[in-house]
Nucleic acid binder design. Sequence first.
DNA 1: GACTTCAGTACGATTCTCTGACGAAACCTG
DNA 2: CAGGTTTCGTCAGAGAATCGTACTGAAGTC
Lengths: 146, 146
Amino acid sequence: MADGEASLNLPLLMFIAHRAVENRVLEALRAAGYDATVAQGRVFQRIGPNGTRLTELAEAAQVTKQTAGYLVDQLERAGMVERVPDPADARARLVRITSKGAETVPLSKAVLSEIEAEWTEHLGKRRMDQLREALTMLREITDPYM
Amino acid sequence: MADGEASLNLPLLMFIAHRAVENRVLEALRAAGYDATVAQGRVFQRIGPNGTRLTELAEAAQVTKQTAGYLVDQLERAGMVERVPDPADARARLVRITSKGAETVPLSKAVLSEIEAEWTEHLGKRRMDQLREALTMLREITDPYM
DNA sequence: GACTTCAGTACGATTCTCTGACGAAACCTG
DNA sequence: CAGGTTTCGTCAGAGAATCGTACTGAAGTC
């Protein structure tokens, strides 16, 4: 966790790029009147089309159930998600995106596309494809949730 | 900041890989008896060989001066860094890695190399080179500190 | 010398996160 | 099916990280 050299290591480079995106998306959401936070976004992002259990959400986002619950509470209060009973398991409830929450999806997607276009512009299509390929493969060995 | 689809977007993939590395390094440091945190590491990582001003550190790590100060306080209390007067400016002080702090550098580097080796194993050298190239170029447009 | 800028600190508030403990439902296993 | 175990989610409490506002003192400007 220490460096000090001129050229940065791979992970740090990923961090830098990722954060830049996160900030852009958040900024756009706020500009549109949705008062989101980074942590909320990280959870929200993992909610599946048919709803996702809290525990699953927690695993995917790699936080504890309590933290996930805390964030979902906020999202629920903001009207972005709702909790509905899970028909398959009475202990569980499904966290689902509400219609209000769904409004943010195309918004985020638009920013993401915009950024992707900028990146492609800067890197060229070939390098972008390679980047995507490498990162996707990397996920196989870095994502404990997979 | 919302998805729900099967394949993940580029930034999220970066986040996943980056976090995996961060955890591995932190784990190794803790195993060696250094009780570090993520936030401390992010600041520590940016300290230059001849020391770095708090304000610079804050900029590089993209946190406020207060946050940087708070984290440096902790690192200082832990004996990992020291603050020395900046000969060039009496207002400023340079945050420098102490000899104790320096012990962690090869430790982190070792883990980083290990991970890089694993990645190269999984991706192949060609793709690793492409990954590095793409990320380095990306930094040019995503790092506000550059 | 007066004004402005910059380095760092102090204080207070908020957000995020964890550990530990718990109740209730579901799943096993004999 | 009764008893034990696991799983889903919550509550309570605490610590870490972060920010905004405001301040002190040193540099730089003119």
